[in-house]
């Protein structure tokens, strides 16, 4: 028999060391998988956000073209110009935030709401696209937050597990919707007062739901 055999305490130590190494390796692999998966989620959220930004810029461009709104057309054009690079994976950096903020500001201009009255469908398309941008931005920032949280763990920092990709940044723009909606549609609120006082009118409305 070549070499000496291990004593029982030595065996115990070896087994324990192997077990610890295996456990650490498994744990690190698991963390690495989570980081990968979060990376995929951030990329998907990035793609989703860019798609919504493009949809908003296109809707704004269509409204601007139909109503001759020059500043809005320019802002939409400006935003669209940068979207091809974003679709290729460029970062949503401060430059992009500024451009999209310009478009938000242009959309909030009073003349847009006024001119939009003449093209309610186009205006509605712009408003719902803007709402979707806000939604997509929230999904994006949630994904970024989850990834940053895991990347910030000491173990991940020390082992440099996450360092293969840049730490993604939050995307912060002012995407609040312009206040256009009325509290109550006019056909509900502006019921002519005399009709209310006629007993028949009141009864008819009441019975609609009871019949």
């Amino acid at each position: 028999m070549a070499g000496r055999s291990f004593t029982l305490p030595e065996m115990t130590v070896v087994v324990a060391v192997v077990a610890i190494v295996v456990a650490i390796a498994t744990y690190l692999t698991w963390i690495a998988r989570r980081l990968d998966r979060l990376g995929v989620r951030v990329d998907a959220a990035h793609a989703g956000l860019v798609a919504q930004l493009t949809a908003r810029a296109e809707a704004a461009g269509a409204l601007a073209a139909s109503r001759g709104l020059v500043p809005l057309a320019a802002a939409a054009e400006q935003a669209l110009a940068g979207h091809a690079a974003l679709r290729a994976g460029a970062a949503l950096d401060t430059g992009v935030e500024n451009t999209e903020n310009e478009l938000s500001r242009a959309l909030r201009a009073g003349e847009v709401g006024t001119a939009g009255q003449g093209a309610p469908k186009l205006l509605h398309a712009v408003d719902s696209a803007a709402a979707r941008v806000a939604l997509a931005r929230q999904l994006h920032n949630d994904a970024v937050r989850d990834l940053r949280a895991l990347r910030g763990r000491r173990l991940v920092r020390v082992t440099r597990l996450g360092s293969r990709r840049l730490l993604p940044a939050y995307f912060e723009i002012d995407d609040a919707l312009p206040a256009r909606a009325e509290a109550w549609p006019s056909d509900v609120e502006e019921q002519p007062a005399p009709a209310e006082t006629q007993p028949d009118a009141g009864a008819a409305v009441g019975q609609e739901g009871l019949a």
Binding site: W184, P185, Q191, P199, A201, V205, G206, G209
Partner: peptide, 14 residues
Amino acid sequence: DDAARAALARRGRV
């Protein structure tokens, strides 16, 4: 108040 109830019902539907 029949009128008030009718108005509430109408807004409720909206």
